[in-house]
Design a binder for these strands. Structure first.
Lengths: 180, 180
DNA sequence: TCGCGAAACGGACCACCAGTCCGCTACAGT
DNA sequence: ACTGTAGCGGACTGGTGGTCCGTTTCGCGA
């Protein structure tokens, strides 16, 4: 990749990140806004990322690395229910931090949340945990259900809940599903 | 309401219903399309329903009545877990039938699924069932989680699953949460 | 039956946005 | 320094949700 291209790519991602953090609603941020904030032509955006979703995915992948790192360093030990709980807890924290971005990505109209890449990853992980805890029957669906319980717009809907309430809810759900 | 207004309202709803059923993607159906199909000016649409969401909500309310009727006639007896399961089962069936419409409504960008009216209704019902089954602790969140497990785009994502697989999944989830 | 005020209509119009296109720029290998 | 080409930028397009206002039609009271 040519030097200027790399520079622009970085600038665009940084600008987009900033704009999405500042916004209260995903579609307050237009592609023109991002291009302008990055000091770059609109053509450059689309050449690099294909379309809006592509840019969102790139941004999400970048931030998702932070989450994956957090999950990797913090040791996931104990019975499956506890490990699953830990995962969901971190996902909720992540989605609260990247509020507007995750909202944008998970509500893009097509079957978005299920095309993030991370979704598949987490789902596989949870299926394994569910299977370990209660056998393979319906493990697939139960894993989907657990992930649905931390969907970005539910997180958004319950944005006023204090951490303890979330913690209690997630714990109750996870244990019911995995320890039941 | 004036006679012509009532007539147009009906025509618009009928046309929209037809178009959404025929479509495979919610935003294949534009407001212009609906107006044209109903044989009505665009102004009439917006005068009557305010905006796109308003029209969707009206459509949804209309169809939702069918669901509410189905739930009312079919007797909801037995332990709470069974009653909850019955509710979720019907919701899934409903969302499979009204595929494009529910997708449109639940992915409209703002906190849509939680503004349908029916959502609140079902949530209250489920909170009561959860409370009856396992006490009030986290009942609120668990009810949200159950509803999240039947979100339209999850239903869409799993559209290839046969009824039995859905049935097994829903049963496992509901019993885990309510009987655990 | 007629007249008339107001409610309702319709479609031209507007602002905006994702995505395209192509003449120009500036990078990098020689 | 020279040059082929990857990359750039911003004017442009097609199509959308939503508005506006001159015109039509309803229905009520006389």
């Amino acid at each position: 990749m040519r030097a200027d291209a790399a520079r622009n790519r970085t600038a665009v991602l940084a600008a987009a990140d900033r704009l999405f953090d500042a916004a209260t609603d995903p579609d307050q941020v237009s592609m023109d806004d991002i291009a302008a904030a990055a000091g770059v032509g609109k053509g450059t955006l689309f050449r690099r990322f294909g379309d809006r979703m592509g840019l969102l995915r790139a941004l999400y992948a970048q931030r998702g690395d932070q989450l994956r790192a957090a999950l990797a360093t913090d040791p996931p030990q104990g019975p499956p229910a506890e490990r699953a709980l830990h995962l969901l807890r971190e996902v909720v924290r992540f989605k609260r931090d990247s509020r507007v971005l995750t909202l944008a990505l998970e509500n893009a109209g097509d079957g978005s949340p299920y095309r993030t890449g991370s979704y598949e990853e987490w789902h596989v992980l949870l299926v394994a945990l569910v299977t370990e805890a209660r056998g393979p029957a319906s493990a697939d669906y139960l894993a989907h259900a657990l992930l649905a319980a931390v969907r970005s717009d539910l997180v958004e809907h319950l944005r006023d809940w204090p951490d303890e309430r979330w913690e209690a809810g997630l714990a109750a759900l996870t244990r019911a599903v995995l320890d039941g």
